[in-house]
Amino acid sequence: MKKIVFDNQHRKKHFAFFNHMNHPHFNITANVNLSSFLPYVKSMELPLTYSLVYLLSKAANDINEFRWRIRENEVVEHERVHPSFTVPTDEAEVFSFCTVPFKTSAQDFITDAKQINEDMKTNPSIEDEPGRDDYLFMSAIPWISFTSIQHAMHYHPHDSVPRISWGKFFVQNNTNLMPLSVQAHHALVDGRHMGRYFENVQELLDNPELLSV
């Protein structure tokens, strides 16, 4: 982890402008194309959810700004950020968070995710580890092909962890699509970074053989 110092005056003003807002997060929802990803995952017998979580996490880790966090009005950059995603449990109809350390190897990540998820089924957790903000909060809404989403979160003080959600797959013009929502703190992530994230996701979806690395 390292401290980020803004030397550019306009970047300093941009950070201060959004950081002092009561609601500094912004959210973009768009459809991504699964036409290459879905058949590949099926042919390789890969678990769909863990493969998708890995892919969405890799796309975020490849962008510095998605690894930035605000701590007492200072910005730090984590070397890696780790997905904390919703999973069903055997204890109740509400979800548990499943936090899996991100690894560059998709196969290693998927192996860890399977084991941690099994533990969560009977020992669910919804609390974050105190002092940690190196997360990516993720949630699946597989019942709805949503066009927007609003997340529950603290505003006073607000956190700077991105929220990433995906919805029900659907077919349009013979193309498999998935709604993807990304929410981030505007003092850290601007529209250009958000656009780069969606580009990263689509490139990985179009080249799913990376999941076998």
Results as ranks from 00 to 15, higher is better:
residue 1 M to R: 11
residue 2 K to I: 13
residue 4 I to V: 15
residue 11 R to K: 14
residue 13 K to Q: 15
residue 14 H to Q: 12
residue 15 F to Q: 01
residue 15 F to P: 01
residue 16 A to H: 11
residue 17 F to V: 05
residue 19 N to G: 01
residue 19 N to M: 04
residue 20 H to F: 01
residue 21 M to D: 02
residue 22 N to I: 02
residue 31 N to M: 02
residue 34 L to A: 02
residue 35 S to P: 11
residue 37 F to V: 06
residue 40 Y to Q: 03
residue 40 Y to P: 05
residue 42 K to E: 12
residue 43 S to G: 01
residue 44 M to C: 03
residue 45 E to Q: 14
residue 45 E to V: 04
residue 46 L to K: 15
residue 49 T to N: 14
residue 49 T to A: 09
residue 50 Y to Q: 12
residue 50 Y to S: 09
residue 51 S to E: 10
residue 54 Y to M: 09
residue 59 A to P: 01
residue 59 A to R: 06
residue 59 A to C: 05
residue 60 A to I: 09
residue 62 D to S: 13
residue 63 I to D: 06
residue 65 E to K: 14
residue 67 R to H: 07
residue 68 W to A: 01
residue 70 I to V: 14
residue 71 R to W: 09
residue 72 E to T: 11
residue 72 E to F: 07
residue 73 N to I: 01
residue 76 V to S: 00
residue 77 E to K: 10
residue 78 H to L: 08
residue 80 R to I: 14
residue 81 V to S: 07
residue 84 S to N: 15
residue 85 F to H: 09
residue 86 T to R: 05
residue 87 V to Q: 00
residue 87 V to T: 13
residue 88 P to R: 10
residue 88 P to L: 10
residue 88 P to C: 04
residue 90 D to G: 00
residue 92 A to V: 07
residue 94 V to F: 11
residue 98 C to R: 06
residue 98 C to N: 10
residue 99 T to G: 08
residue 101 P to F: 08
residue 103 K to S: 10
residue 104 T to C: 00
residue 106 A to D: 10
residue 109 F to N: 05
residue 115 Q to R: 14
residue 121 K to I: 06
residue 121 K to S: 07
residue 123 N to S: 13
residue 129 E to Q: 12
residue 132 R to M: 08
residue 134 D to P: 05
residue 134 D to L: 03
residue 135 Y to I: 03
residue 136 L to F: 15
residue 136 L to K: 03
residue 137 F to H: 09
residue 137 F to M: 13
residue 138 M to L: 13
residue 146 F to G: 04
residue 147 T to E: 10
residue 149 I to Q: 12
residue 151 H to P: 04
residue 155 Y to V: 13
residue 156 H to E: 12
residue 157 P to I: 12
residue 158 H to T: 12
residue 162 P to D: 04
residue 163 R to P: 08
residue 166 W to Q: 01
residue 168 K to T: 00
residue 169 F to T: 00
residue 171 V to P: 03
residue 172 Q to C: 03
residue 174 N to S: 13
residue 174 N to L: 06
residue 177 L to H: 00
residue 182 V to E: 02
residue 185 H to I: 07
residue 187 A to S: 14
residue 188 L to F: 10
residue 188 L to T: 06
residue 189 V to Y: 07
residue 192 R to C: 04
residue 194 M to Q: 01
residue 196 R to Y: 09
residue 199 E to D: 11
residue 201 V to N: 02
residue 201 V to M: 02
residue 203 E to Q: 14
residue 205 L to R: 02
residue 206 D to R: 09
residue 208 P to K: 06
residue 212 S to G: 00
residue 212 S to R: 00
residue 213 V to I: 13
